[in-house]
């Protein structure tokens, strides 16, 4: 089992956190994990991305050019990464901000109206967690309950009052693709 997941979007959309939750959840399940972010000036207001690898065995390269799953939260990220998805891979995009997309053959693409769902839950900032829920349902890199535990560890204590909102977003994401 080897999951190589790239998450990309604007700074502030929580793509780094999304990748970290995945890595943490994998670690809690006793798997090998790595998380590698883009860094430097491109992080200052531009697009950000990170790569999470979850594996049953020692992880070779933490840098991945052909992800098994790609999450894009904005249009520039789709343009940058869409052609890199591994054949048979998964592409989830935030259709609230990314226009309808016809994937090349062999790629399963899912529009996730994450912005709208998050807004309905009362906080547009949890759009990333909605997409995470959809990813968990489709690719099953980690269980939903591990992801919930991971959220508790990744979110700083001062944000813990938002945990139930995040759990709701996660479950909503699972339902969207079920």
């Amino acid at each position: 089992m080897l999951h190589q997941i790239v998450c990309a979007g604007f700074g502030g959309q929580g793509v780094m956190l999304l990748g970290q939750v995945l890595a943490y959840a994998g670690m809690l399940e006793g798997k090998e994990v790595s998380w590698y972010p883009s860094y430097g000036p491109e992080m200052r207001g531009g697009t950000a991305n990170c790569t999470t690898v979850i594996s049953d065995s020692v992880i070779g390269s933490p840098v991945v050019s052909n992800p098994t799953a790609l999450i894009v939260m904005n249009q520039p990220s789709l343009e940058k990464f869409k052609d890199r998805v591994e054949p048979g891979g998964l592409l989830l995009y935030n259709s609230s901000l990314v226009s309808e997309y016809e994937p090349k053959s062999g790629i399963r693409a899912y529009p996730i109206d994450a912005g709208r769902v998050a807004a309905e839950l009362g906080n547009p900032k949890v759009a990333n967690i909605v997409v995470l829920g959809a990813l968990l349902a489709l690719a099953k890199p980690v269980t939903v309950s591990s992801a919930k535990k991971a959220l508790e560890m990744v979110l700083p204590a001062r944000r813990h009052h938002l945990l139930s909102l995040n759990y709701a977003a996660l479950e909503k994401g699972v339902e969207l693709v079920d």
């Binding site: 970290q20 090998e32 994990v33 790595s34 998380w35 590698y36 860094y39 840098v63």
Partner: peptide, 10 residues
């Protein structure tokens, strides 16, 4: 290197 410094692992 930059990868080792920036990446997270358990």
């Amino acid at each position: 290197d930059g990868v080792l410094g920036q990446m997270m692992e358990p």
